[in-house]
Design a protein around this nucleic acid. Structure first.
Length: 491
RNA sequence: CGGGGUGUAGCGCAGCCCGGCUAGCGCAUCUGGUUUGGGACCAGAGGGUCGCAGGUUCGAAUCCUGUCACCCCGACCA
């Protein structure tokens, strides 16, 4: 066990890297900072996509697609936006190659320089609002509720598979509204969609709240976030929803005539969630045996492994197994019968544990004789022998239990590692030992926030929506504070 | 861009200091056989521009110069 994995408790970062590679989720590519998402990793992303897409459509959104390239001039329209993204943009300057003097290599053709450079989108607000300008004249054209599934590029200094790569996949919603209230409502609606998705599907408990000014999206008036705790005590921003005010409407001159015939700027939101969620899934639940996937997002929910000595035995086991597989599939589950003769059962057990398949069924001669099967659940590794007659129900019951159990386990861990602190020495001590979230008072100045970050590497992850008014003193400066905020070191 | 490290078989590494004859080990692969209720065993086989380019030398994986790539730590971030 864990024969191929670095021990999680000894080196968490290495354990994560090993797991991504060994579970065949992704690998590094020939391009610095860019990953190859392998079929099993992509299958998890597809499950995430499918559910989110359903949720977006259920809340009135439609999908569309905007270009990968953005004219450089678009970026400078919104001051804060440019400043936020300028340092990490990939730029296209030419549109043609030619063979070099040796005739063997290729070089960029200097003749083919673009008049205006193109930026590879780090996010699409600008290209989308440039289009919205043409789509919106009247209040009758509003709201526009569009989502796009896309890749974006942010030229990161240091990258890690799924958590931070130069190119990543995500969805970005971009909505346009007639009123401020409606846009704020949309921003809230979508952070709620994200938190419901995280908790119900990813089995990932999250804190919901506002970002501070310094952590806000470049160009937003307000950013809402969901923050999740990883097993090493670090927080991970799992999804964000932005209230953009009229900033982009003003930058791209998008006005509409309201019911009273007055010309007004359009109100905007944007919201995004990325393949980083696959990283969150791994880091929140998995153990030294490998992945633990929530049944609702596992590409493969049940695997059946035959145990046999002779070809005869295999064929009678296969008969039972195939019938069981068909029945499980009819009941809505994704099932694999692994009858490969090239690997031994023990090898298969270990491999499916590494891959995080929630439930494993083993059928051997003993079961054939007794009319039973052995079921093992991935989250607890517990095994039980059940009669064939009741197996379908039992599997469904078990999958529900696993989904619930890993959520509750993560919730317990999160709660046990959220500390309400009032002393600076405790603050430092907690960060250096267990990590986790720290609920503490803050004087609401950017200076204090920055000082805390410099000294401890912890940042304000969010000001929770449900943070109650409470008189207190800033944990760092001692100045008066009206509420607690959540600090943590983060990914 | 700073500081550290590594490039040798598909993967993980040894050899390098102190140059030497056929470049080695583990895993994986292939063949044959025995196995199969928790990552099997035995026997055999295949697989290498030693990152790249120069140089020193009778001789370079090993020494020198240059260069490229990747990893880790920092500044930046979904």
């Amino acid at each position: 066990m864990a024969k191929f994995l670095t021990n999680r408790d000894e080196n968490y970062a290495q354990w994560y890297n090993d797991l991504v590679i060994k579970a065949d989720l992704a690998e590094n590519s020939a391009v610095r900072g860019c990953m190859v998402i392998k079929p099993y990793g992509y299958a998890i992303w597809e499950k995430i996509q499918a559910e989110l897409d359903r949720m977006f459509k259920a809340t009135g959104h439609v999908n569309a697609y905007f270009p990968l390239f953005i004219p450089k001039s678009f970026f400078s329209r919104e001051a804060a936006h440019v400043e936020g993204f300028a340092k990490e943009c990939a730029v296209v300057t030419h549109y043609r190659l030619k063979t070099d003097e040796t005739g063997k290599g290729v070089v960029v053709d200097p003749e083919a320089k673009l008049e205006e450079e193109l930026i590879i989108r780090p996010t699409s607000e600008t290209i989308i609002w440039n289009s919205y300008k043409n789509w919106i004249q009247s209040y009758r054209d509003l709201p526009i509720l569009i989502n796009q599934w896309a890749n974006v590029v942010r030229w990161e200094m240091r990258t890690r598979l799924f958590l931070r790569t130069a190119e990543f996949l995500w969805q970005e919603g971009h909505t346009a509204h007639a009123t401020r209230e409606e846009a704020v409502e949309e921003t809230e609606r979508m952070i709620n969609v994200y938190s419901e998705f995280a908790e119900n599907f990813m089995a990932l408990p999250v804190y919901k709240g506002y970002k501070t000014a310094s952590e806000r999206f470049a160009g937003a008036l307000d950013t809402y976030t969901i923050e999740a705790l990883m097993q090493d005590g670090k927080s991970l921003q799992a999804g964000t929803s932005h209230f953009l005010g009229q900033n982009f409407a003003k930058a791209f001159d998008v006005q509409f005539t309201d019911r009273n015939g007055r010309l007004e700027y359009v109100w905007a939101t944007s919201w995004g969630l990325s393949t980083r969620m696959v990283g969150a899934l791994i880091m929140a639940h998995s153990d030294n045996h490998g992945l633990i996937l929530p049944p609702k997002l596992a590409p493969l929910q049940v695997v059946i492994v035959p145990i046999y000595k002779s070809a005869d035995e295999l064929s009678s086991i296969s008969e039972k197994a195939e019938a069981l597989k068909a029945e499980l599939e009819r009941s809505g589950l994704s099932v694999k019968y692994d009858n490969r003769e090239t690997n031994k059962p023990g090898w298969k057990f270990a491999d499916y544990e590494l891959k995080g398949v929630p439930v494993r069924i083993a059928i051997g001669p003993r079961d054939l004789k007794n009319g039973t099967a052995e079921i093992a659940r991935r989250d607890t590794l517990a095994k039980e022998t059940v009669p064939m007659e009741s197996i379908i129900n039992r599997i469904h019951e078990l999958l529900n239990q696993i989904q619930k159990n890993i959520f509750e386990r993560a919730l317990r861990f999160r709660n046990d590692n959220t500390f309400r602190l009032d002393k600076w020495s405790d603050f430092v001590e907690v960060l250096n030992s267990s990590g986790g979230f720290i609920s503490a008072h803050w004087d609401e100045t950017a200076e204090t926030e920055e000082k805390i970050k410099e000294e401890t590497k912890a940042t304000i992850r969010c000001i929770p929506f449900d943070s109650a008014a409470e008189e207190g003193k800033c944990i760092y400066s001692g100045k008066p504070s009206g509420r607690r905020v959540l600090f943590a070191r983060s990914y």
